[in-house]
Amino acid sequence: MYKHTGSRGSGAPSWVLQRITGLLLVVVVIGHYFVMHANPASGHTYAAVLERMHQPFWKMFDLTFITVGLWHGLNGTWGIFRDYKMKPAVSLTIYGIIILSGIAFWVLGVNTILSF
C-alpha cells in the first residue's frame, strides 16, 4: 500500500551535487587517463610520480579526484541500494559501510598524496 514518507528537501542537494561532481569527473578522469598514457612512464615509475607529486597543481588534481570520485561513487552506490526495499537494520548497515569505507579510503588516499 502506498504511504507518503520522507520529508521535504531530502533529495535536491545530493541530486545537484551528483551531477556537478559527475561533470567534474568527466574532465578529471578522462584527463587523468590521457596524462597517464601520453607518456608511459608518467604513471608507472616512482620517479615520475614523485616529480609530479611535488607540483601543487597535480597534488590538488589528485586530491580533487579522490574526494570527488569517492563521493560521487559512493553517493551513487547508496542511491542504487536505496532503490530496493530493505529492512531498516540492513539499510543502516549498508549506509554505515558506505560512509566508513569512504572515510577510510579517503584518509588512505590523502595520506598517500600528502606524504610527498
Partner: peptide
C-alpha cells in the same frame, strides 16, 4: 586504485 597506490609511501 587508492589501495594500490599506498605502495608509494
Amino acid at each position: 586504485h587508492i589501495y594500490a597506490l599506498t605502495s608509494l609511501t
